[in-house]
Design a protein around this nucleic acid. Sequence first.
RNA 1: GGCGCGGUGGCAGAGUGGUUAUGCAGCGGACUGCAACUCCGUGUACGCCGGUUCGAUUCCGACCCGCGCCUCCA
Length: 460
Amino acid sequence: MIRIHNTLTQQKEEFKPIEPGKVRMYVCGMTVYDYCHLGHARVLVAFDVITRYLRHRGYDVHYVRNITDIDDKILRRADENGEVYTDLTERMIAAMHEDEARLGVLSPTEEPRATAYIDEIVAMIHKLVASGHAYAADNGDVYFAVESYKDYGKLSKKKLEDLVAGARVDVQEAKRSPADFALWKAAKPGEVSWESPWGNGRPGWHIECSAMSNCCLGETFDIHGGGPDLLFPHHENEIAQSECANGQAFVNTWMHAGAIRVNKEKMSKSLGNFFTIREILEKYPPEIVRYFLVSSHYRSQVDYSEESLAEAGRTLTKLYHALRGIIPAKDVAETDYDKRFDEVMDDDFNTAGAIAVLHAVANEINQHRREGKDEEARQAAAVLVRLGGVLGLLQQDPEAFFQADTGGELTAEDIEAMIQARAEARKAKNFAEGDRIRDELAEKGIILDDSREGTTWRRG
RNA sequence: GGCGCGGUGGCAGAGUGGUUAUGCAGCGGACUGCAACUCCGUGUACGCCGGUUCGAUUCCGACCCGCGCCUCCA
């Protein structure tokens, strides 16, 4: 039995898909006006692990993650760059796919783009206007009438009175209530636009997700996820739109990832502590970044720092050491480790607990190999790779992981040659020369590991 | 001000009404020519104060502190 924390009820609940054996999940994707940052990576990796685990448990997961490719920020950025907005979005989508692939994030089942769903969006707005839940304002915009939906606020636990009383909502003459939000935005002169019954314009952000999830997954589906700051107003508005348009429940389980902080401060552009995925990947191998993200629970707030990444690197290195020089056995039956792994993961995807199981398996491998029990070690290695795979970890060849070119001055050939020279010196009992070579390599970031089978190296 | 989350050993981070989380770092030992890797051993941990209980880090209440959202934001 899988239990999932539902933001809607603020409790862990037994997960029961609408259709047995199938999971329909929607996650809010990127607005493609800039490179993805660490916060995006958190959401990407969190829902990637969730998808992998649900599949591991036998579910047929239909995972939809949208792309918002029309939006104020996109138009502004394209304008600043002096380029056509589609050039900007195409470039950012390509970059996003590159970042995802490097982090080991599997492609979603579908990746709908807002601009490909304009007709469906217009149809949904039309439905809302016809049923009195939305209205065309004098300025050409169409707004959702928040007061027409009695459950407004049920996800974010906000009361409409408080929202209206708050000074921070955008008070606009055209709106009936300050909390109303735009479904359709009238085009400004020269701006890209689409036709609609209310004049030329483009969709508001919230309605895109309602329309696309409706098209790809139906009126009611199992899981809707996203970043923590989307909870309000974005997800709240999605619920209002979808439930008013369809007259039935929108989503059963709402899931939100925790926020990323940087050196104990909120990550933000104004604080100058904003990291894009590609910036981080210049400094750390992708799997280490992924390990860092997976090593704490998806709902907890995590603090990014050089030190935590370094520690993640040391720990992952230890895991790969267990696998080094072993060819995992094939077709290994389910073990107690598999059971423990599933048990902790069943509890709201407790990846931290799952990683503890990984360490237990690694420890067993190391003990077997110390005792010369090669077959047992190969069996356990297969389990480690299998369970690691559910988290999207440990799928590389260990040597590839250890020796990944991080732009050091030495090539693999240089290193191999020096190791050879050291081996000869040691054979001649010239330990001083052997140690000198080892020290020289160490200075250049190369660590040697001697074993009965010979010397291996890694970049430290 | 409103709503919500959290305070666990040097650090990171799970979890539990009574029994080892795990990892990193440290220390001691084994292995090694010396290291590295690995193994074994090691650490008054659960914000504060009350309450419930045979027993609370784990449940309840108050308090202190930190954080998030309330505006575009993953």
